[in-house]
Computed example of a mutant assay.
Amino acid sequence: MTALSSRPAAPAHSWVGLAIALVIITAYLGSWYGVLRLDLATLPWGLILLAIAFRTFCHTGLFITAHDAIHGTVFPQNQRLNDGIGAIALFLYALFLYPVMREKHLQHHANPATADDPDYYSDAQRNPALWYGRFIWDYLQGPHRWIVLGGMTLLFHSLFWLGHVPLSNLLLLWVLPNVISSMQLFFIGIYLPHRDPPDGHQNQHRSTTLPLPVFWSWLACYHFGYHWEHHEYPHVPWYRLPAYHAHPPQG
């Protein structure tokens, strides 16, 4: 087993993580600018639904990028750049502050599915909606809450009143994808892997894996469903988790 570390050893000259992170951030910003200007009244519902799905995928990609940065795998050879990419991705996601999210996520890894895990609620096992609500609310504690909620509200109204972005575009192509993305991350990355199974957890990570085929695992949540593998090998970036799922290292 690999010990938990937020600054793992990694290939000294690997630029793959950085390149993927920049593609995700560029796709998010490009689609954000483009779809908010669309005339939705002229588009068939099929294309609108496709735009919502793509925007959701981009939103989730931002969070996964920040998550990998927390574990030091976006650009391992330069901690400042690695953390900078993570901070940008989280800020674009919903004005989240990187140090706050990093502290909470590493606490999750240190105490998975226990009373000391900020992502876990044993009294909400039979009510995933309650667990989801508490999960979101507890990540918005103290000043962080008002920065996120106040900032997102200000940005929304600025885009509507000053940027003249149609309300339907804001709601369908920005707000809705963000909400769906948060649910996607919660259910694939928290609830399903860490809920208590009938016979109890069988490993120290108190986590299971969603055995999806690689393509569907990628679409579901950037392989976040390979969750035992992530806890066992936190130094492995998201795009390499399928290999660890298929062929776990021996010894």
Results as ranks from 00 to 15, higher is better:
36 L>M: 06
59 H>Y: 13
100 V>I: 14
131 W>I: 00
140 L>Q: 06
96 F>D: 04
73 T>R: 00
67 H>Y: 02
66 A>L: 01
47 L>A: 13
55 R>H: 10
71 H>M: 00
69 A>W: 08
64 I>M: 08
123 D>Q: 00
79 Q>F: 13
93 Y>G: 05
104 K>A: 07
76 P>K: 07
47 L>V: 15
103 E>C: 11
76 P>W: 05
48 I>W: 07
45 W>N: 13
108 H>V: 03
122 S>C: 02
71 H>T: 03
141 Q>T: 14
68 D>L: 00
55 R>N: 08
29 L>A: 06
86 G>H: 05
94 A>N: 08
90 L>K: 05
99 P>C: 10
111 N>A: 05
77 Q>M: 12
89 A>H: 07
71 H>K: 05
131 W>P: 09
117 D>E: 02
57 F>L: 10
55 R>K: 11
75 F>H: 14
34 G>N: 12
112 P>D: 06
114 T>I: 03
75 F>V: 13
95 L>P: 10
46 G>P: 01
141 Q>M: 12
136 I>M: 09
77 Q>W: 14
95 L>C: 09
118 P>G: 01
61 G>C: 05
81 L>I: 15
76 P>Y: 00
47 L>C: 11
90 L>S: 10
49 L>R: 07
87 A>S: 13
34 G>C: 08
88 I>E: 00
104 K>T: 10
97 L>G: 15
40 L>C: 09
50 L>E: 07
122 S>N: 08
125 Q>K: 04
115 A>P: 05
81 L>F: 10
40 L>F: 10
120 Y>F: 04
36 L>S: 06
51 A>D: 04
133 G>R: 01
34 G>Y: 14
40 L>V: 10
96 F>V: 01
44 P>L: 08
74 V>M: 07
90 L>G: 00
60 T>R: 11
119 D>H: 01
85 I>S: 02
